[in-house]
Design a protein around this nucleic acid. Structure first.
Lengths: 197, 197
DNA sequence: ATCGGCCGTACGTTATCACGTACAGGCGTA
DNA sequence: TACGCCTGTACGTGATAACGTACGGCCGAT
């Protein structure tokens, strides 16, 4: 089932490996020694004649000083995508005092989603209708643009001032709160984002 | 060689698949039908008793509405890391008219690097000493904070106004230019960041 | 010209992946 | 209780991934 797509991506991996290997100026045997995979196997993989095991693929990636996930990241579409200011997707203006916009395009291959959140004094993200918690493995980076906010993450609190940048596991329960007297805004980068069907 | 690491990550993948499947409330046979892989195979993969082929792994990922690269991204670890405003790493102030700061911590597990670039009128990123081009597979998202910039990517040019957001493959040759009369600043999110040895 | 060394690939063997079927255990219903 | 239905796993078979070895082709050195 869907073997066509599979085959395509598999051969893509192959040429990718070859390109990287040649870019590093390694012979098949060099790479074979680096990663513990036989040279003929590498040759077959590069030519798309076989689909390596995750185990083997991991070793190949490591031999190229890559993580397997990085090696496979050639799938999702290339080119350039622009989202103009007026095209931004607005989040539901549900929770009082909290509004946000998503700045990145809604592509499935998108690895990082950028959004800007504005919090009125005394309000917080995570109200009903807000994006609550992220999928397992998700990771979030937030930059405080204006004002002060408090990050509540997995029970703990972290006070953040203007310009501070915080990174945390987004699959833990979390939300941002604006305690101060002034309006606060922050940029959030969520890297991961899977989706139910 | 390095079979220990392999085994670890492979079994990790397994539990990951199981967690995701259960989170989607699917039985083995449900997922089997969704992705075209037999239920017993899925069971073995989930328990780490076998290392699936890239082909099979791809199908499994698709059955979970994921790209394989996303499924494998469970590597690097967690917690919360804060970079205060005054702790930011400054980029080399080499190129005249271009200065930048890195906002995210220098952790190896970091998936997305956030940086702010300021361009004086008539200048561009990519001068000598600047971060030139990114590793293969890297992907970059940029948000124009102030002024106007032109993205040069792989030969083509893209005019960006204040507030525009652009996403592109960062392993292509690219740089930003500020043509306008005013100073321009932009936030860049680079997701990937691998490293040669 | 000829040899040595390295390149990438074709061959044959073994290990194991992936399948279909068949089984033990839990749950709601008749 | 006994039945049907579903869950997840053990078994045996065919396909194939991965190995080691061996071959033709290319380049530099002697």
């Amino acid at each position: 089932m869907s073997t066509a797509i599979d085959a395509a991506s598999v051969t893509a991996i192959g040429s990718r490996v070859r390109a990287l290997r040649e870019a590093m100026d390694l012979s098949l045997r060099d790479l074979a020694e680096r990663c513990g995979v036989s040279a003929p196997m590498l040759s077959q993989v590069e030519r798309g004649e076989t689909s390596p095991t995750l185990q083997i693929a991991t070793r190949i990636a490591h031999g190229l000083d890559l993580r397997l996930s990085q090696l496979l990241r050639l799938d999702e579409g290339g080119a350039v995508t622009i989202v103009r200011t007026e095209e931004r997707r607005k989040g539901p203006s549900s929770a009082a005092g909290h509004r946000y916009e998503v700045l990145t395009p809604p592509l499935p291959g998108q690895r990082a989603e950028l959004s800007r959140h504005v919090l009125a004094p005394g309000t917080a993200t995570g109200g009903a209708g807000d994006p609550p918690m992220h999928e397992p493995g998700a990771r979030e980076t937030a930059l405080v643009e204006n004002g002060r906010v408090v990050l509540h993450c997995d029970g703990a609190e972290y006070a953040l001032a203007n310009g501070d940048c915080v990174t945390f596991d987004a699959d833990l329960p979390h939300h941002f709160e604006n305690p101060g007297p002034d309006e606060a805004s922050l940029l959030a980068v969520v890297s991961a984002g899977l989706r139910r069907s």
